[in-house]
């Protein structure tokens, strides 16, 4: 009896180093940042926020950020969902190649990857050369420094984080469930809607949470692919701190972005809890 109690007591202590570290180095600084944005310790006011939200330019920036994140997540989902199935269906050497294609790009480094995309998307770059050469386009299309180019590059960076969570759920799905549904008279569309989709939903939610939060906060990809024309919250933060030396503005925007990220985390946890009925 005593031994059991000791073991139980000891367990939560194990988390103390890790959680303590994160608390001190991550949670506390963020909380302080929040306080600074309220102009603490001099006063406690929301004036910085009032200022921020009064400026329509900032709403424009917020909309850019959210829009880019939505588009990136949407395309990642559209392409990543079938790709996850292709990965699950592949065997042997094909599957190994597939996995290499997913993981190897992580080693290139986001800077070089984004830069490689600038080379590809340039007006005289490979993509335009191919499109014009194949006769799809009459003349080269402007992709660099456009939103389309940004989404192109962002999806390229983040799609593995959509594919892998969905794949891990697809892999666990019992194929007999699809067979059972078929034998009961369900058409392929009905099977997809009522069996496959609900069962893969946890993976989809995880993938969306990852990609949306990461693309909301992305900095390097927009910097290299769209530059000044397309201002996002991250770029605004960096600009405030590194160039404008306006720490007040920087911390305000930072908190706005933080709130968005927290909202994504909380809602994805809530959704995940609701769909947990499907093991």
């Amino acid at each position: 009896m005593t031994a059991q109690r000791t073991t139980r007591d000891r367990t939560w202590l194990l988390a103390v180093p890790g959680v303590g570290f994160l608390f001190a180095a991550y949670a506390v600084p963020l909380a302080l940042l929040l306080l600074v944005s309220f102009k603490f310790p001099e006063t406690f006011t929301l004036s910085a926020y009032q200022h921020f939200f009064a400026d329509s330019y900032n709403w424009h920036v917020i909309w850019n950020t959210v829009r880019a994140a939505l588009l990136t997540t949407g395309f990642c989902l559209l392409l990543g969902y079938p790709a996850a199935f292709a990965l699950a269906w592949s065997r042997g050497a094909v599957q190994i190649l597939f996995l290499i294609c997913l993981i190897l790009p992580l080693s290139v480094g986001i800077v070089v990857k984004a830069f490689a995309w600038t080379i590809v998307l340039r007006t005289d770059g490979v993509l335009n050369q191919a499109l014009v050469g194949l006769g799809i386009l009459g003349q080269p299309m402007r992709l660099i420094f456009t939103e389309a180019g940004l989404i192109f590059g962002a999806v390229n960076v983040f799609i593995p984080f959509m594919i892998l969570p969905i794949y891990s759920v697809v892999r666990l799905m019992d194929s007999r469930l699809v067979e059972a549904a078929q034998t009961m008279g369900a058409t392929p569309l009905y099977v997809f809607r009522r069996v496959v989709l609900p069962l893969t939903l946890p993976g989809v939610i995880a993938g969306i949470a990852f990609v949306f939060s990461m693309s909301l906060a992305m900095y390097v990809v927009p910097t290299l692919l769209v530059g000044e024309r397309y201002m996002t919250l991250s770029r605004q933060i960096a600009r405030s701190y590194l160039y404008l030396r306006d720490e007040q503005l920087g911390s305000t925007v930072a908190v706005v972005l933080l709130v968005f990220s927290l909202a994504v985390i909380v809602s994805s946890q809530w959704l995940a809890g609701r769909t947990r009925g499907a093991p």
Partner: peptide, 17 residues
């Protein structure tokens, strides 16, 4: 789905959701 057969599987294959 057009044969009108009923199948009982070895591991039941009940829909968990």
């Amino acid at each position: 789905h057009r044969r009108n057969v009923g199948v009982v599987f070895q591991n039941y294959a009940l829909f968990p959701h």
